[in-house]
């Protein structure tokens, strides 16, 4: 499994991967909001966490469709599935998700403090947004794996994956934004939505890979 993780990381950071696309998209979304909303600093600070979360959510959907498709196109997927008695397929999917998250989504969370400054988010809010993104975005990747597995045989499944999984990511978004706002805006609480967010991630970390493994098994042809 470590071998698979390292291979995916290598593929993720080498040329031809979409890791940078997500960051640039995130940057573009957050950078244009202040121009559209206008220079009302209070308003920007109020909607800041939400904008950061929406930007990160959409950016992390980019490239998800390639999660299994690339492996299918070069035949690796067959071999990964055949090794099912040695490495449970769900575990293989979990590892791939983790590697995808490390190369494509983790950078988004790491540049959040920088982008938050555009939105006039106070330091406490920056820390909270980064922390909630770190905890919440894995859930999006795990949900996304199910969509990616379902559409693995479709050549232009990219948009379909996003449409399929977007409804499922709404709870993650709600609790993520609620927790980041709760950190700065009294009297909203921080801990309850944050714990729910963590629970969602743990829940989808189990359900997502299992469902994706089933979908991949079914999609074999």
């Amino acid at each position: 499994m470590l071998a698979l993780y390292l291979r995916e990381i290598r593929l993720g950071i080498r040329a031809g991967s979409g890791a940078m696309t997500g960051i640039l998209f995130f940057l573009a979304v957050v950078a244009v909001i202040p121009f559209g909303v206008g220079p009302d600093l209070n308003l920007l600070a109020r909607i800041g966490p939400a904008v950061l979360w929406i930007g990160a959510l959409l950016a992390s959907l980019l490239g998800l469709d390639r999660l299994f498709q690339a492996d299918r196109e070069d035949g690796s997927l067959d071999l990964l599935l055949m090794a099912g008695s040695r490495h449970m397929v769900a575990l293989t999917v979990f590892t791939k998700c983790l590697a995808h998250w490390t190369t494509a989504v983790l950078p988004l969370a790491l540049i959040t403090p920088l982008l938050g400054i555009f939105m006039n988010v106070p330091p406490g809010g920056l820390a909270a947004a980064t922390l909630t993104l770190l905890v919440g975005t894995p859930a999006i990747t795990f949900i996304g794996a199910v969509g990616a597995a379902l559409t693995v045989a479709l050549p232009r499944g990219g948009l379909l994956v996003s449409v399929l999984i977007l409804p499922l990511t709404i709870p993650v978004l709600i609790f993520g934004v609620a927790a980041s706002r709760g950190a700065v805006a009294e009297p909203d609480p921080f801990l309850p939505p944050f714990l729910l967010l963590s629970a969602l991630t743990l829940f989808f970390a189990v359900i997502g890979p299992l469902a994706a493994a089933l979908a991949l098994r079914g999609a074999a042809d």
């Binding site: 071998a3 698979l4 070069d74 040695r86």
Partner: peptide, 24 residues
């Protein structure tokens, strides 16, 4: 199969090292 199951972005050796470690 018809497909080789190797990644174009990795070197030949890296590809084989991965499959050896993964397949056991």
């Amino acid at each position: 199969g018809h497909l080789n199951g190797m990644k174009p972005a990795l070197s030949i050796e890296e590809n084989l090292v991965f499959w050896r470690d993964f397949l056991g």
